[in-house]
Design a protein around this nucleic acid. Structure first.
Lengths: 279, 279
DNA sequence: TATAATAATGACTAATAAGTCATTTGTCAA
DNA sequence: TTGACAAATGACTTATTAGTCATTATTATA
């Protein structure tokens, strides 16, 4: 498990520097100080490593953004918080963001494409719920366009943000994006993407993750965690899932305990949804 | 020369279907019905083919958009025309647009990166001049942001446009983008990208193409052209470049004659600039 | 028709890299 | 100390593909 971690970290570094295709497994293992064989004890193939990287980071990024959005009570701040936390995530995981945004992970591996679509869709869902919360009925006909505008703006400025050495003023960037978003949301009258278009384009996300799967994930993570508080919290949540005994307040508190551990972000995102601690 | 054409066409098809990396030279030559050796008579390497493709299409796309923008007298229509002609180009060269936009041509080949930056920069110049013409002084502080917004919107909607099977209503798309652009241009107050940022980011385009180079290009193209009118026009322009004798009206007319031939687009773009037939 | 010049071929070389597996090394309980 | 098990190694196999070049086919020219 620790080995896996090491490989992922070192591989990400090399991928960001040289590109995925241009980085042979041998180079990764050399850089890790392990043998090539050891690599294949941790990952079945190079593709599996790539998928693991995507999952690892996208889960964290999505979970972080979602949490921030759901825990901002003040609508005034919401948009700003959304942008800020997004660019924050990109900055925190800039090596990953670089290969993800720049390379578009262009392999034609079916599994990868599905993965990327899935996370893209999650991001769109977050943006949509944010738009609906902020502007409600007024953007009924333009909200799907708004999603595309927001994504476009984020993409465009992410490029600057990631591939520019001079440090940019993140606060100012977010302020300017908030203004632009508000302008577009409040005054756009010509819709292009209808609800039907959007539905056709994006068939609904199928895989509702079952509670059994979550329990299985927890079992895995418990092994990897050292901090006693986080470990106990996870164990308690796990028991509660098997046989509900705890009060909502306690459950939420336990979730708060674990949500900042990198390995728990996804599980806590799923559990927040499961327990409906929305908003 | 004809062989080169054939290879480029067939290769583009395969690249769009399978990706560049995933398409071996052997497959391209099989698909063309020629031998592998013949490929290397036309191109020194696979990279050279890729570069040729980028040049061929980007020159056409940029020249088309630039021409349209410069020949739209009516400011009212200008933005619409710009978007329309852009999406038109993307549609016309959709195989190319697909690999260019989706794959980002992620090779770490230095020459390729320079190429892509160069065309990206040309596109930004066109957008900037369009913004300045339409909104003038009023966007003095926000115009660099506007460039990024326009690029972001175009990118976002291009994805839809290119990877969606159902035909989309291009007219409506452009109308909606015009509205959004106007909103952003007229009401944005919080600038993020300053002129200094923009200057630092984008060191000026060095290579002014010399008149000798243009003459050389014409010499090459003349060989490839069959249509007598276009051929004669080119030859006359060439003579005029060596020793100016023709009146501006005639020169412009001659340029008009050739500008729609795929091989002449770039030359006519350069010549329009050279003769300063702006606006 | 003979000869030279040019175009085209495809078997071959060389390089790279993914993935395997017989062997070695390390660990720990009895 | 020993033996059983697991972890780790890296030389090896297999596959792929870019690019070459001696040979053959085609065309143009005298």
């Amino acid at each position: 498990m620790i080995k896996k971690q090491l490989i992922m970290e070192k591989a990400l570094e090399l991928f960001a520097q040289q590109g995925i295709e241009a980085t042979p497994v041998q180079q990764i293992t050399d850089y890790c100080g392990i043998s090539k064989g050891a690599f294949y004890l941790s990952f079945k193939s190079k593709d599996e490593l790539i998928i693991a990287l995507i999952d690892h980071f996208m889960m964290q990024i999505i979970a972080d953004i979602d949490y921030t959005v759901n825990n901002t009570k003040n609508d005034e701040e919401l948009l700003y918080t959304f942008y800020y936390s997004t660019f924050n995530s990109f900055h925190k995981h800039s090596d990953f963001a670089k290969i993800f945004i720049k390379e578009q992970i262009q392999s034609f591996n079916e599994e990868l494409i599905v993965k990327i679509h899935y996370y893209d869709r999650l991001m769109e869902d977050i943006i949509l719920s944010l738009i609906e919360r902020l502007y409600g009925e007024k953007v009924e006909h333009t909200k799907y366009d708004l999603i595309y505008c927001i994504k476009g703006l984020m993409n465009s400025y992410s490029g600057l943000f990631l591939f520019n050495n001079a440090p940019l003023n993140r606060d100012l960037l977010c302020q300017s994006l908030v203004e632009k978003t508000n302008l577009l949301a409040r005054q756009t009258t010509v819709p292009f993407i209808t609800r039907e278009d959007f539905r056709m384009l994006k068939h609904p996300i199928k895989e509702e993750i079952s509670i059994e799967q979550i329990i299985e994930m927890i079992k895995q993570i418990v092994k990897e965690i050292e901090d006693p508080i986080e470990k106990e919290s996870l164990i308690l949540i796990n028991q509660h899932l098997l046989e509900p005994t705890l009060s909502p307040a306690i459950v939420k508190g336990l979730l708060e305990n674990i949500r900042n551990h990198p390995h728990c972000k996804w599980v806590s995102y799923l559990l927040f949804k499961y327990f409906k601690f929305e908003k």
